[in-house]
């Protein structure tokens, strides 16, 4: 059941990326998309009543949780954070330039109607 919820979250993210035109909503959709995969990965490494993967005298290897998915999620979250920061930075520049968050309107009306011989100095 819980794996199915991850799938639903992933689908919501995909829906947002494909359908939404607002820049902020698009960024949030990509975050939902990424978090769905992170949660799935954490669930894969989960073990009921498991113990930390640290060797000790009273600890059997069979009860340890798998540490690899956890470290993978940590690294992926950092990468995801870097990408999100870049997305937000570009979104801010876009808003400064066009005073709107609607990506479709920016591309359809503002960029395509811009005169071709603009001075960009």
């Amino acid at each position: 059941m819980i794996y199915f919820l991850c799938f639903i979250l992933f689908s919501i993210g995909i829906y947002g990326v494909l359908v939404k035109r607002n820049i902020i909503k698009l960024i949030i959709s990509t975050m939902i998309l990424n978090y769905a995969v992170y949660i799935l990965l954490v669930l894969m490494g989960f073990r009921w009543q498991g113990q930390a993967p640290v060797f000790a005298a009273d600890q059997g290897i069979g009860f340890m949780v798998d540490p690899l998915p956890q470290s993978m999620v940590m690294v992926s979250m950092i990468v995801g954070l870097a990408v999100t920061a870049l997305l937000v930075a570009v979104a801010m520049r876009l808003y400064q330039e066009f005073k709107t968050f609607d990506l479709k309107a920016i591309i359809k009306t503002k960029i395509k109607n811009k005169p071709e011989t603009d001075d960009n100095a």
Partner: peptide, 16 residues
């Protein structure tokens, strides 16, 4: 402006 708008689209597709 063009690079920012198209770049944003490219980034969203890249993240997906």
């Amino acid at each position: 402006a063009k690079a920012l708008a198209f770049g944003f689209k490219y980034m969203i597709k890249g993240v997906m």
